[in-house]
Amino acid sequence: MAYTLDLKTFTDKRGNLTVIEKVIPFEIKRVFYIYGVDDSIRGGHRHHKTIQAAICIQGSCTIYNNDSKTETKFELNQPNKCLVIEPQDWHTMYNFSKDAILMVFASEFFEAEDYIYKPYDK
């Protein structure tokens, strides 16, 4: 089941500094980011083994999650909130603001065989 983490943030008159240290629950093997998205839906898959941690570092987006038991929508609109997506979590990402940048850390290198595109039956 997907869940959110609060990232440690230091704020003063100069601005904000958010630290990602010792909170991601896996070794990071890949980092990618999604931006410039129109009204398309991204994702539409789950994994055999990859765990992901998603942070909307600018703007906002919605992530729909279904782990075969529970369906949840997460609004990512703060750069100090991180959504951990487990391998069994079938997810889509949509409703991107024009300025959205969604950064994702992954526990595995890209392998096409790790992706499962069929959603759970309802």
Results as ranks from 00 to 15, higher is better:
Glu21Gln: 13
Tyr35Val: 05
Cys56Glu: 02
Tyr33Gly: 08
Tyr35Asn: 07
Gly36Val: 15
Ile41Trp: 07
Cys56Ile: 03
Gly43Cys: 00
Phe26Lys: 13
Arg46Trp: 06
His48Tyr: 01
Tyr35Ser: 11
Pro25Ser: 11
Val31Cys: 10
Lys29Phe: 05
Ala53Thr: 00
Pro25Gln: 11
Asp39His: 13
Arg42Asp: 09
Arg30Ile: 06
Ala53Gln: 01
His47Asn: 09
Ile28Arg: 07
Lys49Arg: 12
Lys22Trp: 00
Glu21Ser: 02
Val37Asp: 13
Arg42Ala: 12
Ile24Phe: 02
Ile51Ala: 06
Phe32Asn: 11
Arg30Gln: 03
Ala53Asn: 05
His47Phe: 04
Arg42Ser: 07
Val23Trp: 09
Arg46Leu: 13
Lys22His: 09
Glu21Asp: 15
Arg46Asn: 12
His45Pro: 04
Arg30Val: 03
Lys29Asn: 14
Asp38Ser: 15
Val31Lys: 09
Ile51Asp: 03
His45Asp: 10
Tyr35His: 14
Thr50Trp: 00
Arg42Tyr: 12
His45Met: 15
Ile55Ser: 05
Ile34Asp: 05
Tyr35Gly: 07
His45Val: 09
Ile24Ser: 03
Gly36Pro: 06
Lys22Thr: 04
Lys22Leu: 06
Ser40Val: 12
Ile24Lys: 04
His47Val: 02
Gly43Phe: 10
Ile24Gln: 04
Gly36Thr: 15
Arg42Cys: 15
Ala54Phe: 03
His47Glu: 02
Ile24Met: 10
Phe32Gly: 04
Phe32Cys: 10
Lys22Asn: 14
Arg30Asn: 02
His45Phe: 07
Lys49Gly: 07
Tyr33Ala: 08
Cys56Gln: 01
Gly43Trp: 03
Lys22Val: 06
Arg46Cys: 12
Ile51Gly: 02
Pro25Gly: 14
Pro25Tyr: 06
Gln52Gly: 08
Val31Arg: 04
Lys29Tyr: 08
Ile34Gln: 11
